[in-house]
Design a protein around this nucleic acid. Structure first.
Lengths: 190, 190
DNA sequence: TCTATAACAGACCGATCATTCTGAAATTCA
DNA sequence: TGAATTTCAGAATGATCGGTCTGTTATAGA
């Protein structure tokens, strides 16, 4: 009954994500978003309500990818150090982008749309909980020292994880990041 | 022989820094910079050449502060773990800002003025070298395990340091960051 | 094939961007 | 005190911003 759309919502979000990722919210101008996504202004407003809505939708999509990866690896049975090492190593590679869209959102809290900061925050909390669950099991399995401060270690791992993304921005190679991870895992194991 | 200026260059840079810090390069509009620094447009262009020049000058000033702090603590004799712990703890507190202007510059590589990224990178390399120097001495003093990978540990500490700034953005409390530091130091010591 | 519908491309809009310019004000040196 | 000089405040400037609107085009159902 009507002209069919020439875009697919997911593809548009992926392309918008890559632009926001590189350029930030203010830096990704509407003209560039229109050109890069192929979605014309009219449809962009109809579908997402505007630039802010597009950013939030792109961020949600990214966080979905990200949490999917963390959940997949950090719920493998049995929970423990293997999962933690696997997730740290996996997340460093295979991305065509630098850094992390979630972290960029956090660092741009005051320029990013209203709801974005909270969404990034919530994702971070779930990731921390996933780390903590694996650490608790690692403790029960005797993989880490008796009396370890599990909650402190959980935040430590997340801190390191986030730091690795900054290291990537600062030009650290995969080999260097690998050595960082090895150093931390060595300190963790009994 | 002429009307005296009503501003002091350093103060202007401090105020510009705080605005760029919070809002990023694109987000800090010239009108806001003029209002916040008290420096009028004419003088801003005469003194710094424009918005980009002001950003670079503010970043240089920030990196000067930052490196000054790192150098002061990480060159205390004798070099070793004490300095490392001291610098990690000191850098987390006492700032009225969130995050780190250097890290923000790295995450906004594609929107920030030409030379800014390189300046941030160079500062990071000096910091890493300072960590490495203290680790090498810690090894010689038997503070860390024989055969430790000093260069890997150095990058690990810098990674953690950067991660702590992101944790601050994500609302981590000083107590939580303290526990993260304690966990890492515990893993480091023999 | 014709009509209703929704997406299309791109022109248009006021607001605001970084930058430049203009003229008044304040100071110094003669 | 008066001329020279530099900063001051704020008014232009052209470009570009995010957002809106209009007329055209392509499809689906009748």
């Amino acid at each position: 009954m009507a002209r069919p759309r020439t875009y697919e919502r997911g593809e548009v979000l992926d392309k918008a994500m890559s632009l926001f990722w590189r350029l930030g919210y203010e830096g990704a101008h509407l003209a560039a978003l229109v050109e890069h996504t192929g979605l014309n202004r009219f449809s962009l407003y109809k579908e997402f309500g505007g630039k802010a809505g597009l950013y939030e939708a792109a961020l949600e999509r990214f966080l979905g990818y990200l949490l999917g990866q963390y959940r997949e690896i950090l719920t493998r049975q049995p929970l423990g150090l293997e999962n933690i090492e696997a997730v740290l190593r996996s997340l460093q590679y295979g991305s065509e982008y630098y850094g992390c869209f979630m972290i960029n959102t956090l660092t741009q809290r005051d320029t990013v749309p209203e709801g974005a900061y909270g969404k990034a925050l919530a994702a971070g909390e779930e990731i921390e909980a996933l780390y903590a669950g694996n650490l608790a099991n690692a403790l029960a399995r005797g993989q880490i020292a008796d009396g370890s401060n599990v909650s402190g270690l959980g935040k430590m791992l997340q801190t390191l994880d986030q730091g690795l993304h900054i290291q990537g921005l600062a030009g650290a190679t995969d080999a260097q990041k690998d050595r960082v991870i090895s150093a931390v895992m060595a300190g963790l194991r009994v």
